[in-house]
């Protein structure tokens, strides 16, 4: 199935939290400021309902997304109010992919964990959580994975300030 068919199918299924889609488009030649967008099409999903959405994607026979290929986040800029949660699903049976994007307010970065849908989310969320300061509620093992347990701050946020020293080790 191509992206449009997947989107239609999810609309038919009334997948919880589905907000819309975003597809690549060329720059508008009339509008000087429009840049257009390249790359993959993706679906916009409500972050708070992401896990239910993933369960639908996984269980529907025609979609059958067995693999959670990737779950990560993006901080688009220092001034942005929202983080993006980027999810990439993969179906072995139907040989198609689906990119999902959620937005999550930086001020209150909290969303339900997706471990219920895919166990692959466990480590991905641990990494995502520590790097972006996101709290995944209901995560079975919410420890840091790459950073030390006592690390302060979310390093991949754009407003992150590098520490001056860590346990007596100068970082300057």
């Amino acid at each position: 199935m191509d992206f449009q068919a997947i989107h239609d199918r999810l609309r038919v299924l009334r997948a919880p939290g589905l907000l819309g889609s975003d597809e690549p488009r060329p720059a508008d030649p009339k509008d000087k400021h429009s840049k257009g967008r390249a790359g993959d099409p993706f679906l916009l999903v409500d972050a708070q309902k992401l896990v239910d959405f993933l369960v639908v994607c996984r269980d529907d026979a025609r979609l059958s997304f067995e693999i959670l290929a990737d779950l990560s986040a993006t901080d688009p800029s220092k001034d942005a109010a929202d983080l993006w949660i980027n999810v990439n699903l993969l179906s072995v049976r139907h040989k198609h992919r689906l990119a999902i994007k959620c937005t999550l307010a930086k001020q209150q970065a909290r969303m339900p964990s997706s471990v219920r849908a895919y166990r692959a989310a466990q480590w991905a969320e641990r990494e995502c959580g520590e790097m972006f300061g996101i709290e995944f509620t209901g995560h079975p093992d919410p420890r840091n994975i790459l950073l030390p347990d006592d690390w302060i701050g979310a390093p991949l946020r754009k407003d992150y300030e590098f520490p001056k020293e860590y346990h007596g080790i100068s970082c300057v």
Partner: peptide, 24 residues
């Protein structure tokens, strides 16, 4: 160009995915 893309290729160890976002 502005945009975002996820590309997965078959690495010897599995799918190596790169998700890149550009603002131009």
């Amino acid at each position: 160009p502005t945009g975002e893309a996820y590309v997965g290729i078959e690495n010897p160890r599995g799918e190596l995915g790169h998700y890149v976002v550009s603002d131009g």
